[in-house]
Computed example of a mutant assay.
Amino acid sequence: MSKRIPTNIITGFLGVGKTTAITHLLKSKPAEEIWSVLVNEFGEIGIDGAMLDQLDNVHVREVPGGCICCVAGLPMKIALNMLIARTRPDRILIEPTGLGHPEEIINTLTGEYYDNVLDLCATLTLVDPRRLSDERYIGNASFNDQLALADIVVANKTDLASEQDKEIFNEWVQQHGKDKSGIEWISHGKIDPQWLLKPRRERAAQQGEQHRSALAPRQEVALPVALAEGESWLCRTNQGNGFYSVGWLFHADIPFDFNGFFLLLSGLSVMRFKAVLNTSQGRYIFNAENGVLSVNQPPLLDDGEPLESRLECIDDKPIDIAALQASILALQLLPGFAQR
């Protein structure tokens, strides 16, 4: 290639708002530029790509089903190579799973194979200040090393943070943030595109081995999940690093009761639930994090083609899949569909 492609890793733990932030960046990019996004998800269904792949001059490729950093970068290399070859982007954004560890991703992108292809710029790590007092987060190796390897730490959702939350974050900055290129405060994922231009610095992970030993290695590239002919819906599960996921894919012709689904998620006690859903009131994005639910409408696609509904639940304890699935199926407005 005639010049190296500017590339940024945008990381952060579960529910911090990475996809919202990337969507903001994609809407803010120069109209004539082509940007490509590599999305990695812990769950098998793949939802973030469906949220992002709706903008002009933007190309998205997903690697679902686990952390792309844990098999010598093989899944990431294959997906990234295809993305570069097919889209010839002006910039690449990489969104690892919230449970992922960025060390091996950085090593791969700065290794000999990509040295003349990619220009790895600043790594941005989003953090919710409310989580710096939660042991489930601060006791997690990936959470801590996402912050350790960040060039720029971005406090997101600051409109929801209390004064105590902000004080705890400021204490963290005093202890760990002195070598960072930036400490920023935002709400609603409104990252300044200029931050992408800052250079990357060499940084050391603190708990990388702990993350790798907790995950079963994945030797193959997970293919995007798709419904077979005549199949109305399917369910897929995954687990690793002390976390569990279950996801569903539903045919585009199956709508769900909006109010019923809103009530279901409002009372659901899990770390993370997200869905892009066809409902009685239109297509909506549902995001639930630790009991807090938000609902938004995605932008309409120009071609108007109907899209499947995608749902994913992640928790740090085993999920009662049968009970949750029964609740979801009960909200279908076209009963009688069966899983093949």
Score class of each variant (00 low, 15 high):
T87D: 14
G260E: 14
D128Y: 00
T97G: 01
A155M: 09
H188T: 06
L132F: 03
S142P: 00
D303P: 03
G208I: 08
P335I: 12
T125A: 11
M76E: 06
P89D: 05
S187L: 04
P96Q: 07
D315K: 10
Y113G: 01
F13K: 03
G189L: 09
S2R: 15
G100A: 15
V60D: 00
T158V: 11
L83F: 06
R131G: 01
T20D: 03
C70A: 04
G15R: 05
Q194T: 15
D320S: 14
I78E: 09
I328Q: 03
A222R: 14
T110M: 07
N116T: 13
T108S: 09
G267W: 13
L80P: 00
G189H: 07
A338I: 10
L93Y: 04
K29G: 01
Q146T: 04
V71Y: 15
K180S: 04
T7G: 06
L14Q: 04
A323L: 15
N57M: 08
L215W: 12
K77V: 08
L301W: 08
A275P: 06
V292D: 05
E32Y: 09
N296D: 13
S309E: 05
W35R: 02
Y114T: 05
R203E: 05
K178G: 09
S232M: 09
R136H: 10
Y244M: 11
A148F: 06
L196F: 04
K317Q: 14
F258P: 07
A150R: 01
L324C: 06
D119R: 04
G336C: 08
G282E: 12
L160M: 15
R212P: 01
G242Q: 11
A214L: 07
E103Q: 12
M51G: 00
N81G: 14
N287G: 01
E104Q: 15
D53A: 15
N57H: 12
P306A: 09
R86V: 08
N238G: 08
I68P: 05
I138F: 08
E167Y: 15
T11H: 06
P255R: 15
L329D: 03
V173W: 02
F258G: 09
P299D: 10
G12W: 06
D253M: 11
G291A: 07
E104C: 08
E231Q: 12
A79M: 08
G291N: 05
I94R: 04
H59S: 13
P75I: 10
G65R: 08
L74A: 10
G240M: 12
D253W: 14
W185R: 06
K317F: 12
R272G: 06
L14N: 03
L249P: 00
D115Q: 14
G304L: 09
R130I: 01
V276G: 13
G230M: 10
F42W: 04
N144R: 13
K178W: 12
V221Q: 07
L268F: 11
N287V: 06
Q146A: 03
F169P: 01
F258E: 13
S327C: 14
L307M: 12
R340W: 05
N296T: 12
N107A: 13
F250S: 08
N278R: 12
L234I: 07
Q54V: 15
T87W: 03
